[in-house]
Nucleic acid binder design. Sequence first.
DNA 1: GTTGCAAATGCAACAATATTGCATTTACGT
DNA 2: ACGTAAATGCAATATTGTTGCATTTGCAAC
Lengths: 141, 141
Amino acid sequence: MPLTERFTTLLKNHGLKKTPARLRVLEILTKSSQAIAYSEIEHQMKAVADRVTLYRLLISFEEQGLIHKTFDHQGTAKYALCQANCDIHTHHDEHVHFNCTQCNGTFCLDTVILPAISLPKGYSASSYQFAITGICKNCRG
Amino acid sequence: MPLTERFTTLLKNHGLKKTPARLRVLEILTKSSQAIAYSEIEHQMKAVADRVTLYRLLISFEEQGLIHKTFDHQGTAKYALCQANCDIHTHHDEHVHFNCTQCNGTFCLDTVILPAISLPKGYSASSYQFAITGICKNCRG
DNA sequence: GTTGCAAATGCAACAATATTGCATTTACGT
DNA sequence: ACGTAAATGCAATATTGTTGCATTTGCAAC
């Protein structure tokens, strides 16, 4: 299925209207091998949409389960497409992230298995954020 | 050992001068059962120190291994005292954090054992950030 | 105790990041 | 083609973090 068609379906399935800005963001995220910071998306969106539009767009994408948002080792928000069929009700992003201190890249490590963790009594978990900081594959070259 | 004396030693051991602002921050962090956001510390520091001083103070505390800094589920920076004998060379903070979505509290779960994780080839880890988001003990009560 | 100096602080200005209100435009079902 | 709710753009504002520089302070050496 061609990209644009896939995006159209994706947006429709999540009750979102198809707009140039949204298609562009989906394209950017799809073509990236890693999670992208807001500033980077904005940079690539030049002339396509206003800053505010981008903020609001990302918020609704996240609410609707199209993308997930993580924070790297410096607290910078990074966005990536959800792999599975997330939606507004079941929005899970249970995989390990790797943050590179050299290139500042954030990678989703889908192959790493999440260990089970038992919480102390009284606490109830709704989601997990596991991140590893270090040097990535590329930067070690 | 009384608090003030302990703080004095702590600062001296890390090559930091003893100042009212620093003593106050140590006191605030010591008396808190959870990690504290910058804004909260600033609020409790009213009239004791300038915003900028607080920022710089926290940075040097972190560099010298007196405190550690984490980001909660909303990307807010939170600070807490280091438990062990961290210093500028060996600064480790390998425990699980719990972020409550109701009170926005961040707790260090020292009792939870960190699982071992094996990275894909090519990646090398220097630190780990494991966080669990949910409802904390107090908010369930 | 006095002195000297690096460290720490305060202030002002600035930079970066995120949010809100509101008028206008656009997508899309009917 | 039309009507409406959703989406956008713009301006203003809020929040958060940083930089430069003059002044003050802690503390070690004398």
